[in-house]
């Protein structure tokens, strides 16, 4: 298949010259995710993702499990992706379309930056993602919904910002934190208790890890840290200096510390005691 883009001295009317999606739709429509390609059956789903603000930016994190119905499809899927120097997307919903959408979004941002010579504003990026979700609506209707979280550092305003979305492209800015996915409620509950404005970064990272751990205890779709295989949640932070992912070893150490803390507080038992259990009288 020829992937050459015809040479345009002036792009056709109605085509946004900086839009990568328009360009692909014109030249390689089959490369875009579409309803025809989808088999809405049991596709892997990605689960708990979260973002929270700290004093110099924003922390974004996700667990590593993908499920197909009641079975585990992947133990070590990645759900947090940098989309450029100062922003990142975390994905929940159907894994395949979500990863495709992220790849298209990454290319979209880079394409704009190269053509225009400057980055989109954070607001512009968030709106672009909303448009892409709206374009995904037919697939969402077939059960292949994607629910991302978008977080980034707004260089103009000098702060970290979080955007949540619904399946049909609604975009809502979140003041302080948010978590999405099957374990989202549980993760939110943990963050809510611990969160305060202007958290230092280390504390925000700890809260993210704790929230994901709590979600994994309550929700079958969320994978907890897997010590045996050394699989830990993905946690990254974005500040003025850019996107940085926290190393696996550092997260392992934080997780060990969290367990020690809980053991010391008497919150981890080898077996759950069941009060009021009694023998069945035959």
């Amino acid at each position: 298949m020829d992937s050459n883009v015809p040479f345009d001295q002036a792009p056709a009317a109605g085509i946004e010259p900086t839009s990568f999606s328009d360009l692909v739709r014109e030249n390689r429509p089959e490369a875009l995710p579409s309803v025809e390609q989808s088999a809405a059956a049991e596709a892997p789903h990605a689960t708990t993702i979260l973002a929270l603000r700290y004093d110099e930016g924003v922390v974004i994190a996700g667990d590593r499990r993908a499920t197909e119905g009641y079975s585990i499809a992947h133990r070590s899927i990645e759900k947090v992706f940098p989309t450029d120097e100062h922003s990142a997307v975390a994905i929940a919903g159907t894994a395949g379309p979500a990863i495709d959408m992220t790849r298209l979004f990454q290319t979209e941002l880079e394409h704009y930056e190269k053509i225009e010579g400057e980055q989109l504003t954070l607001e512009g990026k968030a709106n672009k993602l909303a448009q892409m979700l709206r374009a995904n609506l037919p697939m969402a209707m077939q059960g292949l919904g994607v629910i991302p979280l978008f977080a980034g550092y707004d260089l103009g305003r000098g702060l970290g910002r979080i955007f949540k979305y619904d399946m049909v492209g609604g975009r809502y800015e979140q003041e302080d934190f948010w978590a999405v996915g099957s374990g989202g409620r549980d993760a939110r509950a943990t963050i809510k208790k611990r969160y305060r404005p202007d958290l230092p970064r280390d504390e925000a990272v700890k809260i993210a890890l704790e929230a994901l751990y709590d979600a994994s205890e309550e929700d079958v779709g969320t994978g907890g840290p897997d010590v045996l295989r050394s699989i830990y949640p993905n946690i990254a932070f974005i500040s003025r200096e850019g996107y940085r992912r926290i190393g696996e070893e550092e997260i392992a150490a934080l997780f060990d510390a969290l367990l020690e803390e809980r053991k010391a507080a008497g919150r981890v038992h080898s077996r759950e005691s069941v009060p009021g259990s009694h023998e069945v009288n035959q």
Binding site: S3, V5, P17, I115
Partner: peptide
């Protein structure tokens, strides 16, 4: 400039497709 943009388009479409 027209040539530069053509190159970016060509490269991004190819990189995304393959």
């Amino acid at each position: 400039e027209t040539l530069r943009m053509h190159g970016i388009r060509q490269a991004d479409v190819r990189g995304y497709s393959y």
